[in-house]
Design a protein around this nucleic acid. Structure first.
Length: 225
DNA sequence: TGCCAGGGATTAG
DNA sequence: CTAATCCATGGC
């Protein structure tokens, strides 16, 4: 382990934010997909990209092939890139999808992977070129249903606004800190990440330093922060 | 019209 | 180990 995480989040405060977000926005029903494999494809396609564009790309894919690792590899990188063009970075992502599909086929099937411990599975996913920490955790949580917290830019932005972090913390430091402060429940971690995204999109989080007018402010007030 | 989205790899300092 | 840079489409 890379010992000594200095970052420590307060359990009650963090869980209070979760409850308030849930009360405000309700269940988010993530991940929007029809199969674990589709979740994982989406996790790669959504990298630094609007989800709406990803939906188009997936629709194009499904129009041509049945969504499976075999089919994705069979159509070839060129064709694959054209199909996923709406998702942006389409050449890069075509390669990443192929890398990932090769990994899945080498592993056998999803059931084989499901037998791995979460740390081993995480390491395996991270070994794929094009799958970084956030994408791997998306897959772990939303496809494999492991109790991990997904850190993203919205998490950093919101936690910074609340005053819990400086912003420069490493990915793992943040992830483990949240996981230590929250129950290890897939259901809750699923909603928590989705709610943070939902809240960031719904509120005035672009370019507004103090966030005085959005619901985070009311959350902070209720929490007396 | 310009900015930026549910990142990651690569390169440079 | 941190900081830029590249990848690219579509919505507001």
């Amino acid at each position: 382990m890379t010992g000594g995480d200095k970052l420590s989040l307060h359990r009650e405060s963090l869980q209070q934010v979760y409850r308030l977000l849930y009360q405000r926005h309700g269940p988010q029903h993530w991940w929007p997909a029809n199969s674990p494999f589709e979740v994982m494809v989406g996790a790669i396609l959504v990298q630094n990209t609007n989800w709406q564009n990803v939906e188009r790309a997936i629709a194009c894919l499904e129009g041509e092939i049945r969504l499976s690792p075999q089919q994705v590899l069979e159509i070839g990188e060129e064709h694959l890139a054209e199909l996923i063009r709406p998702a942006g970075y389409f050449r890069v992502k075509a390669g990443r999808l192929r890398n990932f599909c090769s990994y899945l086929l080498d592993a056998g099937d999803l059931d084989s992977l499901q037998e791995l411990s979460t740390p081993d599975l995480r390491a395996g996913l991270l070994s794929v070129k094009g799958v970084g920490p956030e994408t791997a955790d998306d897959m772990l949580l939303y496809a494999f249903e492991r109790p991990v917290f997904v850190v993203d830019a919205y998490t950093r932005r919101i936690f910074s606004r609340i005053g819990w972090i400086e912003g420069g913390e490493g990915y793992e430091s943040l992830r483990l800190s949240v996981q230590r402060a929250m129950p290890a429940q897939v259901r809750m971690l699923n909603e928590f990440h989705a709610l943070l995204v939902r809240h960031a999109k719904a509120s005035c989080h672009k370019r507004i330093p103090a966030c005085a007018a959005c619901c985070i402010a009311s959350i902070c007030n209720k929490m007396k922060i």
